[in-house]
Design a protein around this nucleic acid. Structure first.
Lengths: 148, 148
DNA sequence: CTCGGTGCAAATTATTTGCAGACGT
DNA sequence: ACGTCTGCAAATAATTTGCACCGAG
């Protein structure tokens, strides 16, 4: 199950009304592989294959992708923006000690929470999505976190 | 129920092993009143009463308070750090259009989620807390969001 | 008196923007 | 060819830090 070929990424861009330029393909491609990177981190990775793409452009492209709903910003406490191209509704596991952010997808829990809020009266606010933020510490920083 | 007198704030600082200096009292006092401000916003407010306190110090003090568990950083997507002195476990309602962050306290829901995770097997990770992030848009930006 | 705390300004880090040229459609 | 996109570098924003002085305990 290859996640996203270059061809697929081009399609995504075009469908969203963006020109499928090389820098954009590179950013979106890397973004689908990486785990919630910052612009800086993405730039590092991209420049390995593609030294000419500038950091400023990575910033601009990321904001474009957010605008086009091909990615979104991940909330962090660190003061630097981080991005995610995983568009499925999902929550995040945040490791305080390693600054890592891991996806956590749990349809059962989603539904539980959604049901809960259906019963609530929320005034003057249109809820677009509800996410969990699961904070804690990795025991072994080099190992993955597992949830069964 | 006055939330926090100067006297109480002094106590908090001292109990946490921090000297109760005027700048710290001012920051913590303002932080308990304000709604998730940034260092910059706090500095604006504080300087009205206390023009000599520098922005750099506000930054330093806020980090000290976090370290001492008298406040914490609020996760945002905006790339600027924001702080909160409300130590009760609570979640946040985030208005995308106004950048506002509002507290949302719901013991029933907390318990629901906690129970849910008790049944899960989480490996290599010690959960310290689980927060909801309720994202959406304020219908009327000038009115409060209400949840019954 | 002794440190830790602070003001100030400079340094660092992160992001945005203006502009001229390059490139995708 | 056209208008958008990009590289580059300079501008702006946000945070951190060095240093000399101040003040609470």
């Amino acid at each position: 199950m290859i996640s996203n070929s270059y061809q697929r990424i081009k399609e995504l861009l075009v469908e969203s009304g963006l020109k499928a330029t090389h820098p954009r393909i590179a950013v979106l491609h890397e973004l689908t592989k990486d785990e919630h990177p910052s612009a800086e981190q993405l730039h590092e990775k991209i420049r390995e294959q593609n030294p000419s793409i500038s950091l400023g452009s990575v910033h601009r492209i990321l904001e474009k992708l957010v605008e086009a709903n091909l990615a979104y910003r991940v909330a962090t406490r660190s003061g630097t923006k981080r991005y995610d191209a995983n568009l499925e509704p999902h929550s995040h596991i945040y490791s305080v000690n390693t600054e890592e952010i891991q996806d956590y997808h749990d349809p059962e829990l989603n539904e539980l929470i959604r049901d809960y809020f259906e019963k609530k009266q929320v005034g003057n606010f249109k809820i677009t999505d509800i996410k969990l933020q699961i904070n804690g510490e990795k025991a072994d920083p080099d190992q993955q976190v597992t949830i069964l």
